[in-house]
């Protein structure tokens, strides 16, 4: 019987090893360990053995059964893994195929520039003020120290709708309106918006463009405060290593008036085609609010002083992104617009 048992064991192990898939292995299991299998038969036949041999034989059968079971499970694990691997293999995809496109849109480059400037000044405690694009001559010119017949009106060729109504030529009338509304109180605002001038559209001129202006009025506002504020702006907008320089200039609504240059962000000041070999790029106009402007809006110019600055988002975008033609901003070619999707931090 022992011989029979060993023979059975080696037969079983042989078949386990020979099984190539789960199904075959399961057949082996049923064949040897099933209720009708030879091992069960052997155990059933134990009764016929003499009593003293039974424990020995019983133990022997159990050893064989355990060994067969263990080997079978080991083999099963291998075959199952093999089966999964085969399935996964058959499920392989071409991961180089394109992903399902996600619709993305983005802001217009001018909005992008304006929003960046807005956020910068908001973080310094400024509010954003807006005003009408169709304006009264009074707010666009007179309240800004540009009475009728003032030669400086020539600097801004104007679209008139009637003698007193026009398309604003700058965002400064928002300052005049805000000052009037605040009735002598301190102010800290920036004013973005569309403006219009009687220019023929070409690569560098547009009859419609945007401006963003700032105005601070308070006690003891000094020209050094203007310089400091503009310096913060230049560094945040164009990079930490930007230097600024002020040059005297003229605007009827400020005195003194300045223009601000920044050191060229492309060449760092050595001279290149962006800065026309000067190392400096003109960015904005600014100045101390003219006392006439303050007085006209009901401010006591002896008590309160202020500064104002104004810049063109078109120019800033053109410089920053290397855009060569201002008309791109108004053509809305999607091949142009969609380039302003990605962040630039």
């Amino acid at each position: 019987m022992e011989t029979q048992l060993n023979e059975l064991k080696s037969q079983a192990l042989e078949q386990i090893a020979a099984a190539t898939n789960v199904k075959e292995l399961n057949a082996v299991r049923v064949a040897y360990l099933g209720k009708k299998g030879p091992i069960t038969d052997l155990l059933k036949g134990m009764g016929k053995l003499p009593a003293e041999e039974r424990p020995k034989m019983g133990a022997l059968v159990n050893v064989v059964r355990e060994e067969v079971t263990t080997r079978l499970e080991e083999r099963m694990a291998i075959l199952e893994e093999q089966a999964i691997n085969e399935k996964l293999q058959s499920e392989t995809i071409d991961i180089t195929l394109p992903g399902r496109p996600v619709k993305t849109g983005n802001a217009h480059p001018l909005t992008r520039v304006i929003e960046e400037i807005e956020d910068l000044f908001i973080s310094m405690g400024y509010e954003v003020e807006e005003g009408p694009e169709v304006e009264k001559d009074y707010y666009n010119f007179e309240a800004l120290n540009l009475p009728k017949g003032h030669p400086a009106r020539d600097m801004q060729d104007t679209f008139y709708i009637s003698e007193e109504i026009l398309l604003r030529t700058h965002t400064s009338p928002v300052q005049a309106r805000t000052m009037e509304a605040k009735g002598g109180e301190p102010i800290k605002i920036i004013c973005p918006g569309k403006v219009y001038r009687r220019d023929n559209d070409d690569a560098t001129h547009s009859h419609q463009f945007t401006q963003i202006e700032g105005l601070v009025i308070g006690e003891d506002i000094r020209m050094s405060d203007l310089k400091g504020t503009l310096s913060v702006f230049a560094k945040k907008m164009f990079g930490d290593d930007r230097e600024i320089r002020l040059r005297p200039s003229f605007f009827p609504f400020t005195e003194p008036s300045v223009e601000m240059d920044i050191s060229c962000f492309k060449c760092g000041g050595d001279g290149c085609n962006v800065c026309k070999k000067t190392g400096w790029i003109e960015i904005l106009g600014a100045g101390m609010v003219h006392p006439n402007v303050l007085e006209m809006a009901g401010y006591d110019s002896k008590r309160l002083t202020g500064f104002a600055f104004g810049m063109g988002p078109e120019r800033i975008a053109m410089l920053k992104y290397g855009i060569e033609d201002i008309r791109h901003f108004y053509t809305n070619d999607v091949r142009f617009l969609s380039q302003f999707e990605r962040t630039e931090v």
């Binding site: 310094m124 405690g125 320089r245 005297p248 005195e255 003194p256 300045v258």
Partner: peptide, 29 residues
């Protein structure tokens, strides 16, 4: 103010220091 500008421009705008307004901070937004 016109005299302020004459003095400043010939003294040199580079000589103006950089400061920030000392008025009370405002919330902004």
């Amino acid at each position: 103010e016109d005299v302020v500008e004459e003095i400043a421009r010939l003294y040199g705008y580079d000589e103006i220091p950089s400061t920030l307004p000392e008025t009370a901070t405002t919330p902004g937004g």
